[in-house]
Nucleic acid binder design. Structure first.
Length: 290
DNA sequence: CGCGTTTGACCCGCGC
DNA sequence: GCGCGGGTCAAACGCG
């Protein structure tokens, strides 16, 4: 990456949703909520949602987070590692959006919210112009040689959990582990064990906040989850049965329109996600575990 | 025995 | 060209 900061509403070829959800460690007893950031949770959950030690299996929250630096931030920054999508990559279109963790849930995942500090619409326009320029630059067909690495959609999650590898309904096989620079926590690499399914995920702990696990999914599953999480795929009204796992991808695919996960999405902005559905998901997590 | 993890080696892109 | 860092491979190993 070039040293420069990613800007909100940037360019790019994919989009990240950063979320936090808490989990009972090892699927065990509910003491796992310790270490859970209630304050953060309260940003998205209404006061009627019980967060104080309730046996919640998962809590999905969206929150600004800069995955490229693994640092919590006020923004959600879509970022591609320079390896998977070099700045000059012909497909380079990145999307970034502002998240405001200090606002209500809807705003929290609100992309249309131009950000807490941007009262200036003009500023924003300039920003977009600049980004359009960057996009043009990025679109310069520079990559030819490698030409590899198609741009898989990726999602990154922040998870407050004591266990690194969270149950998500799919089976994964670890194929590597690497030390992360400037972090004492290693990064683990997993692949979906289903044949013909090339979904990968990376799991690492934030060196800033070791209670936070950062999970990055890459690609789409070509099969159904071997674990029936919801009993139904209708996420906005999941089965009353307590979910024991979370199917991130399905969930996000439903909440986000095609442009979000489609690497060929249109610039400068994809359609907004279904915030209502996201909110439903969040609250359903809170209630389904009662 | 099958499946998953561990771990050192290797590959590759990037910046200098 | 070289070194660095991230990502992947694959043999060895562990476990049920």
């Amino acid at each position: 990456m070039s040293g420069e900061r990613s800007e909100p509403y940037l360019h790019g070829d994919y989009d990240d949703l950063f979320s936090i959800f808490s989990q009972k460690p090892g699927g065990g007893r509910a003491d796992g909520l310790q270490g859970f950031d209630h304050q953060t949770a309260s940003h998205v959950l209404s006061s009627s949602d019980r967060l104080d030690g309730s046996p919640m299996d998962y809590l999905l929250l969206a929150r600004g987070f800069d995955a490229s630096s693994s640092q919590p931030d006020d923004r959600v920054v879509g970022s591609r590692s320079s390896k998977t999508a070099p700045a000059g990559g012909g497909d380079g279109k990145t999307v970034t959006r502002n998240f405001s963790p200090s606002s209500s849930s809807t705003e929290l995942v609100g992309e249309e919210d131009s950000g807490p500090c941007k009262t200036d619409q003009r500023k924003q326009e300039e920003e977009e112009e600049k980004q359009a320029d960057e996009f043009k630059k990025a679109n310069n067909p520079r990559r030819k040689k490698g030409e590899k690495r198609e741009t898989e959609p990726r999602f990154a999650f922040m998870t407050r959990s004591e266990v690194d590898h969270l149950e998500d309904g799919y089976r994964w096989r670890k194929y590597g582990q690497k030390a992360v620079k400037n972090s004492r926590y290693p990064r683990s690499y997993y692949r979906c064990t289903a044949q013909s399914c090339d979904v990968k995920k990376r799991v690492e702990r934030s060196h800033q906040d070791p209670t936070v696990v950062i999970t990055t999914y890459e690609g789409h599953h070509t099969h159904h989850s071997p674990v029936n999480v919801w009993g139904s795929t209708h996420l906005s009204s999941p089965s009353p049965a307590t979910p024991t796992n979370l199917r991130h991808d399905l969930l996000l695919q439903q909440a986000f329109p095609a442009g979000y996960t489609n690497p060929n999405m249109h610039f400068p902005r994809p359609p907004p996600p279904d915030y209502g559905l996201l909110q439903d998901i969040v609250t359903s997590f809170a209630h389904s575990s009662h």
